[in-house]
């Protein structure tokens, strides 16, 4: 399985480089800090504020995880190895995506300690919004990583790749604000494109199939574009 080979290689690279550890460390530190602040100040067993903030921190962190995916291959010319091997760009992109997504899942998984802590100390904790919130977080991560993959495929410079990812994701995050100004169809369309608006509904405990489909289409679209960018090397 060539996809598995790419996946394994990417995971190895993540764990050999300090970037993944730094992202993990700082993310967990910030989330732990927030958990403490929120819990002590509100004295309510509610995970919503934490998940709300975690999503934004992940928006900041994911460019660091995705920036080198393809850019580094381009910079070090290993892209020449991949594209002259009997492996298709689709397999390359899927393998890399899965590796990064797996890392993301581990990162998210490590925050499950907080609902567990709440569960241990609070009576009748409402698990519904927590579960739907985590589903939202997982879908959001897939979208972040897919967009980062696209940004990484267009440049050999990791910094530029991270900046495109960060800028693009932030834009998709705040698209919904257009509704405040535009009271028409455009405003409505833009807010429907907003990752943040969609994610918020998950936090309220709603797993709307429309929102799920939106995140999946968002993810697949950017992965598809990344694939086309890689393929275009061969016919440009």
């Amino acid at each position: 399985m060539k996809i598995l080979a790419i996946l394994r290689k990417e995971l190895q690279t993540y764990f050999y480089s300090p970037a993944a550890y730094i992202v993990f460390g700082s993310f967990l530190l910030i989330v732990g800090y927030l958990f403490w602040i929120v819990l002590v100040s509100s004295k309510v067993a509610n995970l919503e504020p934490l998940l709300y903030n975690a999503a934004f921190i992940l928006l900041l962190a994911s460019p660091v995880l995705t920036m080198r995916l393809v850019s580094e291959e381009r910079r070090s010319n290993t892209i020449e190895l991949l594209l002259t091997s009997p492996i298709s760009p689709v397999e390359i992109v899927i393998g890399k995506f899965l590796a990064c997504f797996l890392l993301y899942l581990i990162l998210i998984g490590l925050t499950l300690q907080y609902p567990a802590i709440l569960h241990a100390y609070a009576q009748n904790l409402d698990w519904g919004p927590i579960i739907s919130g985590y589903i939202g977080l997982i879908l959001l991560g897939a979208a972040f990583i897919a967009f980062g993959m696209f940004a990484s495929s267009v440049t050999e410079n990791q910094v530029i790749s991270a900046m495109i990812t960060f800028g693009g994701l932030l834009l998709f995050w705040i698209f919904g604000w257009a509704k405040l100004v535009l009271d028409n169809t455009l405003g409505e369309v833009m807010s429907r494109l907003s990752l943040f608006e969609r994610y918020q509904e998950f936090l309220k405990g709603m797993v709307d199939s429309g929102n799920v489909v939106f995140f999946l289409i968002f993810t697949i679209t950017w992965l598809f574009i990344a694939t086309r960018v890689l393929e275009s090397d061969r016919w440009r």
Binding site: K9, Q12, T13, Y16, S17, S76, T78, E80, L81, T84
Partner: peptide, 13 residues
């Protein structure tokens, strides 16, 4: 089998 001018290696592996 192709050996490009700079060998395509992953330094961390």
């Amino acid at each position: 089998g192709y050996l490009p001018e700079t060998p395509p290696l992953y330094p961390e592996m």
